[in-house]
Amino acid sequence: MSEEDYEEDGEMNGKKFLYVNRRGPYGTVYALESLEVVLIGAAFEQDVSLAFMDDGVYQLKKGQNTDGMGMKNFSPTYRALEMYDVEKLFVSKESMDERGLTTEDLIVDVEVIDNAAMADLMEDAEVVLSF
């Protein structure tokens, strides 16, 4: 996307996008790929929601430290999403419970929803991107 394409005061008239994240960070490339697509996609002024379920909830875990492993810690970037107008973050209640996690353990503010609400979110989306 070229910088010249940018217009100030762009309107939110795009489609409803839902990114579904189901993998932990680092073990596979899915988490990082998803984050990059979200950031690139944010330039297109769509209505974006992010869902984290299964091991995907671990992407948002506080205190990630990759110094000993030699990969880049990309977890701080989730805190930049707000500036990209990506503000709707949902996590699965069942996935959090199964892993003994609470919202206190996460680096960003999220809305915790149960499986039924997650299903509605998927039904409601016009485009679903799965990672």
């Binding site: 932990g24 960070p25 680092y26 875990k61 990630q64 430290n65 110094d67 000993g68 492993m69 977890s75």
Partner: peptide, 22 residues
């Protein structure tokens, strides 16, 4: 340990009796 720390966990998060190695 390095894989544990990368995922935001420390020795306090692991089950008692599990040993952490580098």
């Amino acid at each position: 340990g390095p894989d544990l720390n990368a995922r935001g966990m420390t020795d306090e998060d692991v089950i008692d009796g599990v040993k952490i190695v580098d």
